[in-house]
């Protein structure tokens, strides 16, 4: 895929991932979890990542700083160029120490389950301070003061008294705020949020979304927001990336992609009735099962479930190609706009 066409921003991407392959060696065989994923992330933007369970969203993002269990996980190939004010490096080439300097410092993480993501035996204040003391010059009472400010910043009432509380003394939403405080503690360039609201109830979800959006705007942090919920993504992301079977099948600006989905899988996800042509089959619920990941995809991974599938789809794997509008890419042999198979370049 061509870089830098797909943003309205003029900056260079802060993160350029190219052709990432990740596998898991299990007793049942090799799982091809991520198969040639490429994407860009621009400074300060929020990129939504959607796709059904098992499509490789978490593995893709966690692989960048090797937060997947290895073994069984194995990053086979790919590059992840991280370019900020101070750094310009390939994340996948770092050694353990270098990686530990980026984690939590330049790139922060928020995880799905705030109930289990904090250590039950350590006060939340200490858990935030730990990060500060690892990456910044703050120490002792100054670090503590900074933590209290952070707690205030993420909307925890009475932060000074709450510093010494343990995770079990907080509600789910409050714990997720603590996780956000950890993620922003060292003023990172990127936050990777892996389904941060899935485990929360709806009103709390909205608060966490608002908080994240506010902070990312205030602090100029780029956010990768993984979610099942297309509604949530529409509310927070500027661009969205749709994953299927360990590949990116479509990516584009949120409004454009939601209004004009170009990949049959996205069409299905959005539950939209395609009105392009009479004889186009309906696709409200995506029937069929997720693809087996026990082999590297040699054809279109969506082919078994795709109503538009034709001969080429079974023979060759489609690559991400630009579809008319700027920054809108789709990996599909079928041209929905012209309603005919795309011309195959050799």
């Amino acid at each position: 895929m061509n870089s830098n066409v797909n943003s309205n921003k003029n900056d260079k991407p802060i993160l350029e991932v190219r052709d990432l392959h990740v596998r898991f060696d299990t007793v049942d065989g090799v799982i091809y979890a991520v198969n040639g994923v490429s994407f860009d992330l621009y400074p300060g933007e929020t990129l939504g990542v959607v796709g059904e369970s098992g499509s490789g969203k978490s593995v893709t993002m966690m692989s960048l700083l090797r937060l997947i269990p290895e073994p069984p996980g194995r990053i086979v190939s790919g590059t992840a160029r991280f370019r900020s004010r101070e750094d310009d490096l390939d994340l996948l080439q770092l050694n353990m120490r270098q990686r530990a300097k980026i984690r939590g410092n330049r790139i922060g993480f928020i995880f799905q389950d705030p109930m289990s993501s904090l250590n039950p035996l350590i006060t939340i204040g200490e858990q935030i301070k730990e990060s500060l003391e690892r990456h910044t010059k703050w120490r002792g009472p100054e670090a503590r003061q900074r933590v209290v400010e952070l707690l205030e910043h993420v909307g925890i009432p009475d932060p000074d008294a709450r510093y010494g509380n343990y995770p079990h003394q907080f509600s789910g939403g409050m714990r997720q705020r603590v996780m956000i405080a950890i993620a922003i503690a060292c003023d990172p360039d990127i936050i990777i949020a892996d389904e941060p609201t899935t485990a929360l109830d709806v009103t709390v979800q909205a608060q966490i979304v608002d908080l994240t959006r506010r902070l990312s705007e205030e602090l100029g942090i780029a956010v990768i927001w993984i979610s099942h919920d297309l509604g949530v993504v529409a509310g927070i992301a500027e661009r969205v990336m749709v994953m299927y079977g360990g590949t990116v099948v479509e990516t584009g600006v949120v409004d454009d992609l939601y209004a004009h989905p170009r990949h049959p899988y996205t069409v299905g996800l959005l539950g939209a009735l395609p009105k392009l042509h009479e004889n186009v089959p309906e696709l409200v619920n995506i029937s069929g099962t997720p693809p087996s990941l026990f082999a590297a995809p040699s054809r279109c991974p969506f082919e078994p479930r795709c109503p538009w599938a034709f001969k080429t789809c079974r023979e060759r794997r489609p690559a991400l190609e630009s579809v008319q509008r700027d920054g809108h890419f789709s990996a599909c042999w079928y041209d929905m706009e012209k309603d005919k198979p795309r011309e195959v370049r050799r």
Partner: peptide
């Protein structure tokens, strides 16, 4: 445990 992954994600040694 998830909180150990969190610890790693903070860059702790």
């Amino acid at each position: 445990e998830d909180y150990i992954r969190t610890a790693y994600s903070k860059g702790l040694l």
